[in-house]
Amino acid sequence: MYSQELIKGTVTPLILKLLSDNKRMYGYQITQALKEATQGKISLTLAAIYPVLHKLKASGELTTEKEKVGNRLRIYYSLTDQGNAMAKERLKEFADYLNTMKSLLDFKPGLQKCLMV
């Protein structure tokens, strides 16, 4: 399982990705979807996911619908138009970042030389 420190900056893009692939999702569903898609390597704590969902809602990227499930309410999150545009931008940025990290970590004689100095 990856450390929470490593996952920290990736929570927002991951949530945006899930919501852009699925029309709407609720909190528990998001945590389970991440766990399943990554074979348990990414297991987010409550403190990593719910504050981000509320922040994205407050800034207009997400909208919510409440639905009665049994004896309680369930909050479904979905992307707004603004959120869709942001998701595309953030996911593009995230993919670019991953490429940069990959090229940094790949074996390169020049870089190795720098690190040895």
Partner: peptide
């Protein structure tokens, strides 16, 4: 404490 967070977490724990 926050009411919306409570609704979210209530559903989360009930499902779990």
């Amino acid at each position: 404490v926050t009411s919306e967070l409570m609704e979210d977490l209530l559903d989360h724990f009930c499902v779990a």
